[in-house]
Structure formats: structure tokens, C-alpha cells
Design a protein around this nucleic acid. Structure first.
Lengths: 187, 187
DNA sequence: AGATTATCACCTAGGTGCGAACCT
DNA sequence: AGGTTCGCACCTAGGTGATAATCT
């Protein structure tokens, strides 16, 4: 009757459920100039537009050769944001109603560092990138109907809310864009 | 209308579809005696009961500290087997109607090796384990009604085929087992 | 004849915005 | 009043064995 369980660790009793969602549109980057034979980690963290640093997200393909990373668009679409400060499952913890900006870190592999354990990223052999265009504001309920429409029209998981008629408008905005970072929640 | 695509690489035109399934029950191991601070990869490959070596599967949490690995049961339930020799997407390629045995490799991290690129595993700083009890026979259609019943009763994805009545028998076999490897396809 | 492939209904697993309920 | 949480219907994505069709 019961199945064969297969969990990585026993889940602690969840307190408040809070919010836990993917970021959409997700962070997508293309890299050049890596040493094809060296190993790198691709990491994203999210920083307040003013002060200190928050938890980061390691791309699940990490570590991987420069050659492999450069051959593709690197997509962090499984990265998850939450407002639950008690969290410890690898999500990025943010405060609602604050303004943030994602950063991408290209890290050469270092055997002495366990990325799943450390709190803050190393500073050596790391290149960091971020773009002003990707600033976004966190919310628990949408404040702006255009954002809602954008998400419904572009996120495959929100297909159930789509108006079969006119989604031309959104295509106009994003259709010819070469940006690999898209605008995120912006009110 | 169209969504924002997010693929790791452009998929090549699939030739023959062949078979592609997870292994169930999956390989599950518990490790002791690692250096809690060193980094390790956990890897499985599958070898014929007689001759040469086949492609391997790196546990997606790799690399990870010895401390972390030892704290949990390590479960390779996402590992996939196929009989499609043209495959190159990280699946384990096996020939149908042959007898195989999975092996677990505990590998200390080595910055100079990109596991996603190499064809055969390194031999230094690697410990390899396998158990006769886990030998199994590959098939494309089940030959043995007991195996079919075992899979239907224990695999959550096969719930649709379950007979709501008597699954006591399977519980009897597996219910009090401390084996971390379960018996696999065995006819 | 016996092995393999293709398709299917039926699941698990989990990502959406909505709207009501709940805080504070 | 305004921000947050919860349950929901509706999706995507993908893992099952059964069955029929196909291959060799």
C-alpha cells in the first residue's frame, strides 16, 4: 500500500506556509570568454537595491566546463523566491514590498568550498554581473494589471487564465527583444 | 502567445523513440566514514554481469560534503535507463534481455575532471560498491506477473492500475526489510 | 512467434492567478 | 484599509502498465 519513500532528508514541520514561487520571467544569461576546459559554477543571488546580501542559488548544472556553459543560454527558471525567513531548503529569501536586483556570479571551481553549506559567496576567482534593467519589486498580490497580463500571457503554467483573443500587445513589447534579462515585477 | 523558451540546449531530431524509463525500485544507499569536510560525487553505473562498462549517472546533488551525504539516504530515483544507443542525454544505455548490476561510486572531488564530459570514470580517489542482490534483467515487456504486481503496488506512478483489495503480499516481502537496495527486475 | 515500439488513460508532482479569509 | 495566507480550479511536465501495432 505505502510506496517506497525516497526523500533526501526528513522534512521539518512547516510553520507558516508563506509564499514560495519561481521567478518569472526567469534569469537567463549567455556567457563568453570562459576557459573551455576549466570548471565553473553559475550562481545567482538577489540583492536589495541598497544594502546587504541574501542567499544565493547555484545553477543545477554546476559545476560544468566553460565549453558547455558557453554553448547554451543559461536559465535559472527553477530558482525559487520566498518570504519565509525560516526557510532552509535553498530558496532565496526576500521581503515583500522591497526592491531587488538579481546578480549572476561565474565562479571557477574550488575543491575546498561546498556551495551548499557556505553562507556567503567567495570573492576570489569570481566574476559578478548585474543589470539595472532587471530590478524588480516583490509583492504578495499584484499591484499592476499589466504585470498580471504579462505573466498570464507568457508563463505556461498560467495558461488557464489566458484570454484567447488579444495577446498581441505583449508580443509587441517582448517580441523583438534581444534582452536575455527580461523586466520582472515592476509597478 | 508563445512562451518564453528556456531550454538548456537545442534538442537534436530524435530518431527511433526506443524505451526510456526510470529504474524502479531505485538505487538507494547510505554511506559512512566520509570526511565531513571534503567534497564528493555520488555516481552510479550499471555493468553487465560479465564484461565491459557502461555510461554512468551522477547524483544531482553532487558535489556535496561528506557530512551532507552521510546525513541522508542517497536516492538515485531520477536515474533513467534506455535501450536507445544513439542517446546522449545522460541516460544509462542498456541492452534488453541482458542481466546487469548497478554499482555505486563515491568519488572525492577533483577540479580537473568534468564528469559531464568524460566517458569512463577515474580510478583514483574512488570507492566502488555493488551487491549481488541487486542484479536485474532488462526487458521491454514484463515476463513475470509477480514483478508487474510489485511495480504496480509500490510505484506511485502506477497507482492507476492498483487493485484496491489485496496488497498484503508485497508488504510481507518488503515491509520489514532493512535492505537499502531492493530487489529489482528478477525473473 | 517473440521482441519492440507507439499510443493511451491514468496517475504523481508541482507551477499559475484568483478570490475568500485572515491578519494587523 | 491594506498586506498576507489559504484553498482552489486549471494548467504543464512527466512517470506508469496495458494494449495494439509493428518489426525481425
Amino acid at each position: 500500500m505505502d510506496n517506497i519513500p525516497c526523500h533526501s532528508s526528513s522534512s521539518p514541520p512547516a510553520l507558516a506556509q508563506a509564499i514560495l514561487r519561481r521567478m518569472f520571467p526567469s534569469v537567463r544569461v549567455k556567457v563568453k570568454g570562459l576557459d573551455p576546459r576549466k570548471q565553473y559554477y553559475m550562481v545567482v543571488d538577489v540583492v536589495p537595491v541598497d544594502s546587504k546580501r541574501y542567499k544565493f542559488y547555484v545553477h543545477p548544472d554546476s559545476p560544468c566546463s566553460g565549453e558547455t556553459w558557453m554553448r547554451q543560454i543559461i536559465c535559472f527558471d527553477r530558482m525559487k523566491l520566498t518570504n519565509n525567513e525560516m526557510d532552509d531548503k535553498g530558496y532565496i529569501i526576500l521581503q515583500s514590498m522591497h526592491k531587488y536586483k538579481p546578480r549572476v556570479h561565474v565562479m571557477e571551481q574550488d575543491s575546498s568550498v561546498d556551495l551548499s553549506q557556505i553562507q556567503s559567496l567567495p570573492t576570489e576567482r569570481v566574476k559578478t554581473f548585474s543589470f539595472k534593467e532587471t530590478e524588480f519589486t516583490t509583492v504578495t498580490a499584484y499591484q499592476n494589471q499589466q504585470i498580471t497580463k504579462l505573466k498570464i500571457d507568457r508563463n505556461p503554467f498560467a495558461k488557464g487564465f489566458r484570454d484567447p483573443g488579444r495577446n498581441r500587445f505583449v508580443q509587441l513589447i517582448f517580441g523583438n527583444s534581444n534582452l536575455l534579462f527580461y523586466l520582472l515585477l515592476k509597478d
